[in-house]
């Protein structure tokens, strides 16, 4: 089976690990081989959380620079920071709602301009799907559902050996009962948003 390598980057607290977990469970449901790895040291202290999910025939759980097939960023500057994981064929999906690092708040560093950021990624990767996932999460009923919105977008790209149904099934069985409805709505909103973005690009 073909190997598909996905990197998810986020800021601690954005739900990266749950998103990865849902993908893993969906793979188990779909009977697709899956291996994952995460670096979450001090996530709760505002650091970066990176996870890698490898589908198909691979023993490795981590992904080398330039070898990700898909990069999903829950925060735009973190997406840009992780571009070293991409190659010219990588699909990049990013939230456009910044979480400004504290270093910028205290005047040590400048947050990248969002238009420049998108242009840079577009030039380098095969495809960029960028939209405000935070707004959609709020629309779904909880700002914490950013992770599910982006999963929706990820599945829409059809780069993974998983269907919407697999992922929704995983959401239903593996996320907290009280949030299932919001999470599924968020997933659908992300799916449609990615569809809309690709349509505009093709037009």
């Amino acid at each position: 089976m073909k190997t598909t390598r996905v990197i998810i980057v986020a800021v601690g607290g954005q739900g990266n690990l749950l998103a990865s977990r849902v993908l893993g469970e969906a793979a188990l449901i779909a009977d697709v081989p899956v291996r994952m790895s995460e670096i979450h040291g001090m996530a709760q202290r505002g650091g970066v959380v990176e996870s890698s999910i490898v589908f198909g025939d691979s023993e490795s759980t981590i992904i080398s620079d330039g070898e990700a097939d898909v990069l999903v960023g829950f925060e735009p500057s973190e997406t840009l920071r992780a571009v070293n994981k991409c190659n010219s064929k990588t699909i990049v999906i990013t939230n456009l709602s910044p979480l400004v690092p504290f270093t910028v708040s205290i005047g040590k560093g400048v947050y990248p301009d969002l238009d420049v950021l998108q242009k840079l990624i577009q030039e380098k990767a095969a495809n960029l799907i960028a939209f405000n996932a935070t707004t959609l999460a709020r629309e779904a009923g909880n700002v914490m559902a950013v992770n599910m919105v982006l999963l929706g977008a990820l599945i829409q790209t059809k780069t993974l050996p998983l269907s919407s149904d697999h992922v929704k099934e995983a959401i239903r069985t593996r996320t907290k009962k009280d949030f299932v409805q919001i999470n599924v709505t968020a997933f659908d909103l992300g799916y449609s948003a990615a569809q809309a973005v690709s349509k505009t690009e093709n037009a």
Partner: peptide, 12 residues
Amino acid sequence: IPEIPQRPPNLC
């Protein structure tokens, strides 16, 4: 790629 501001873990 411009310099991306660091996001070191911090005291809460």
